[in-house]
Amino acid sequence: MDWPAYYDAQAGRSARSVLVEALRRRGDTPAGAAIDLGCGEGTETRHLLRAGWRVLAFDADPGAKDLVQRGLHPAELGRLAFGQARFEDLPELPPADLVYAGFALPFCDPAAFPGLWADIRAALKPGAWFAGELFGPHDDWAGRAEMNFHDRAEVESLLAGLEIHSLVEDDRPGQSAMGPRHWHVFHIIARNPS
Results as ranks from 00 to 15, higher is better:
residue 172 R to W: 07
residue 55 V to A: 03
residue 170 D to T: 13
residue 43 T to A: 05
residue 155 V to Q: 09
residue 91 P to C: 11
residue 107 F to T: 01
residue 91 P to R: 12
residue 117 W to C: 12
residue 160 A to C: 03
residue 81 A to M: 07
residue 135 F to S: 04
residue 147 M to Q: 14
residue 104 A to K: 05
residue 56 L to C: 09
residue 96 A to V: 09
residue 56 L to P: 07
residue 139 D to K: 03
residue 78 G to L: 12
residue 110 P to H: 07
residue 118 A to W: 02
residue 141 W to C: 14
residue 51 A to Y: 00
residue 79 R to A: 15
residue 91 P to L: 08
residue 57 A to Y: 01
residue 126 P to F: 12
residue 130 F to G: 05
residue 70 R to G: 06
residue 58 F to W: 03
residue 168 V to F: 06
residue 61 D to W: 04
residue 83 G to K: 04
residue 163 E to L: 11
residue 59 D to I: 12
residue 157 S to W: 11
residue 91 P to A: 14
residue 51 A to H: 06
residue 145 A to C: 02
residue 119 D to V: 01
residue 167 L to Q: 09
residue 105 L to V: 08
residue 43 T to Y: 02
residue 55 V to C: 01
residue 150 H to Q: 15
residue 57 A to P: 04
residue 49 L to Y: 05
residue 134 L to I: 00
residue 72 L to T: 13
residue 68 V to C: 00
residue 116 L to N: 10
residue 58 F to N: 08
residue 176 S to T: 10
residue 91 P to V: 11
residue 135 F to E: 06
residue 69 Q to I: 01
residue 154 E to N: 06
residue 166 S to Y: 02
residue 149 F to S: 15
residue 81 A to Y: 00
residue 113 F to K: 12
residue 140 D to S: 15
residue 69 Q to H: 05
residue 70 R to P: 02
